[in-house]
């Protein structure tokens, strides 16, 4: 690891003034205009903002699905270079499980794509299913599982190839409120147990505060990053923290930044 300014560890992810534009000329649409984001390894960063503020675009740039027009993006360092593909796990709003594969084979999809040896991958898939609370469901079809359980399988799939960063695009947005709260706690537990760096996109301010060790607030029109700050709530996070004064202050701060009244 490189040493930066007085022994500080260089951030794992470094986005500097990143700008992304779709189309050109009169049809030009600025997806994100100026995003600067430093993430340390092992952090859980929540990206919060209204729809159309470019949260998804930031994830797609980090996943190397998109190019960008300005700024720089660096991940990892010379000693441990970041490998796009191998080092990225993604979770979307929909579980996106393949109907023609059972649960464990769905979790093994990254192994097929990356060409990982199947035997250890299978063992790891079993361990991950245990981690996400789906032990015993290996041979089930996706349609036999509830929405929340399907999303747990999707999280296991995102972790299969042991990626260094997991990108989650509103992973619990399609779930009912109760399941969503349970999944929030589950993900916090999985994060602590796995030690992964997670970027978590949400449009729920409550969720952003509860989940994030850091919080990036993004605004639309123009799409840019309004603030980036630590959330210093104690761990393990609990749902009743939402009633605490500290939690309320963070939520208020985000409300103010987003101009929501």
């Amino acid at each position: 690891m490189t040493i930066q300014e007085a022994g500080e560890i260089a951030p794992f992810i470094r986005m500097q003034n990143v700008r992304k534009v779709y189309g050109s000329g009169d049809d030009e649409f600025v997806a994100v205009s100026d995003v600067t984001l430093n993430v340390q390894e092992g952090e859980m960063v929540s990206l919060v903002g209204p729809s159309g503020c470019g949260k998804t675009t930031v994830l797609k740039i980090l996943a190397d699905l998109h190019g960008y027009e300005g700024g720089t993006v660096d991940i990892g360092d010379a000693e441990h270079p970041f490998v796009p593909g191998r080092d990225v796990g993604m979770v979307f709003q929909q579980p996106l499980l393949l109907k023609w594969r059972n649960i464990i084979d769905n979790v093994l999809l990254p192994a097929d794509i990356l060409g990982l040896p199947l035997k250890p991958a299978r063992d790891r898939a079993r361990d991950l299913l245990k981690l996400v609370g789906l032990e015993g469901f290996e041979k089930r079809s996706p349609h036999e599982l509830s929405g929340g359980m399907q999303q747990r399988a999707a999280i296991a799939r995102a972790l299969l190839h042991d990626p260094r960063v997991v990108l989650m695009d509103e992973p619990f947005g399609a779930l009912d409120a109760l399941t969503r709260e349970r999944m929030n706690l589950e993900l916090l537990r999985i994060w602590e147990e796995s030690g992964k760096t997670i970027l978590f996109v949400t449009h729920s301010i409550q969720e952003a505060v509860l989940m994030g060790s850091k919080c990036a607030v993004m605004t639309s029109g123009p799409a840019r990053m309004a603030a980036y700050f630590d959330i210093e709530l104690p761990y393990p996070r609990k749902l009743d923290m939402r009633q605490s004064a500290e939690f309320g202050e963070y939520a208020r701060k985000i409300y103010d930044l987003l101009g929501v009244e």
Partner: peptide, 23 residues
């Protein structure tokens, strides 16, 4: 096929051929 599913495979650097045969 869901766009996000294609993106999922592409985020793992899956080839066009893999997207075809696996998805």
């Amino acid at each position: 096929v869901d766009r996000d599913l294609i993106d999922l495979v592409r985020s793992l650097k899956g080839t066009k051929r893999q997207i075809f045969s696996l998805i």
